[in-house]
């Protein structure tokens, strides 16, 4: 479970995240949606423990900067950053060693096959296209079987097959009880599996909805998004 409480992130006088509080339960897929500059990526980076912030973030009851939290957290960054001089397989090995994983090879092979990287095992990070680098990021984040996973614009740069595979991985993780947060403004890409949505604008959460509530009202995610963001613009 992810518990974000009064998260505020300021860059000098600019407030990127303004007092965000929300909870994402085990087995839930939450979407952080919002226009460009709404503060989605900043929030994700704060949760991943990459930025300084005010407030509290707990991952399964552990402070997000603690070693215990890091052990159960997976993070797929917005911009993939593979190691230029490591091969695809060595990325897997590095993560396995850094996280002290045992019997990781089978899982690594499975991820690599699903992301269609099996013929690129000996390719260096610098030799891969942006899309393939994104696939490595996903494999690295999921190799550790994390309890909570943060995806920052995960579908950008992926080919249709990889998008399909990633979606089915999300369903599988959800079924296993993994807490998942996806930051995106491509609403149609998450339309089929979201459970909870936080619509952000100007660093604040303007609306929080559950799938059941939205479906009951006859709305869809896109209509909800525009009704909130357009209203606030006016």
């Amino acid at each position: 479970m992810l518990n974000v409480s009064h998260l505020t992130k300021k860059y000098h006088r600019f407030t990127a995240n303004d007092n965000l509080s929300f909870i994402v339960n085990d087995g839930e897929i939450a979407v952080l949606a919002g226009p460009n500059g709404a503060g989605k990526s900043t929030a994700i980076k704060c949760i991943a423990g990459l930025l300084r912030f005010d407030g509290e973030i707990e991952i399964d009851g552990h402070n997000n900067k603690s070693i215990e939290a890091k052990k159960i957290l997976g993070y797929v960054p917005e911009i993939p950053a593979p190691f230029e001089l490591l091969t695809v397989w060595e990325h897997m090995e590095f993560i396995a060693r850094a996280y002290k994983l045992t019997d990781w090879q089978k899982k690594a092979e499975e991820l690599i096959t699903r992301m269609e990287l099996q013929d690129k095992l000996n390719k260096l990070g610098k030799e891969l296209s942006k899309g393939m680098q994104q696939k490595i990021s996903i494999c690295c984040a999921l190799l550790t079987n994390p309890q909570t996973v943060l995806f920052d614009e995960p579908f950008v740069g992926l080919d249709p097959h990889a998008i399909k595979e990633l979606k089915s991985m999300l369903f599988e993780m959800k079924a296993k009880g993994t807490t998942i947060i996806i930051s995106t403004h491509m609403l149609d890409s998450v339309d089929e599996f979201w459970d909870r949505v936080f619509i952000m604008m100007n660093g604040r959460i303007e609306a929080e909805r559950e799938r059941k509530t939205v479906e009951k009202s006859g709305e869809n995610l896109e209509e909800l998004f525009f009704s909130i963001t357009e209203k606030n613009k006016d």
Partner: peptide
């Protein structure tokens, strides 16, 4: 320092 991994690795 340019990559997120060093910050994410669960170690001291």
């Amino acid at each position: 320092l340019n990559k997120p991994y060093i910050f994410l690795i669960p170690d001291s």
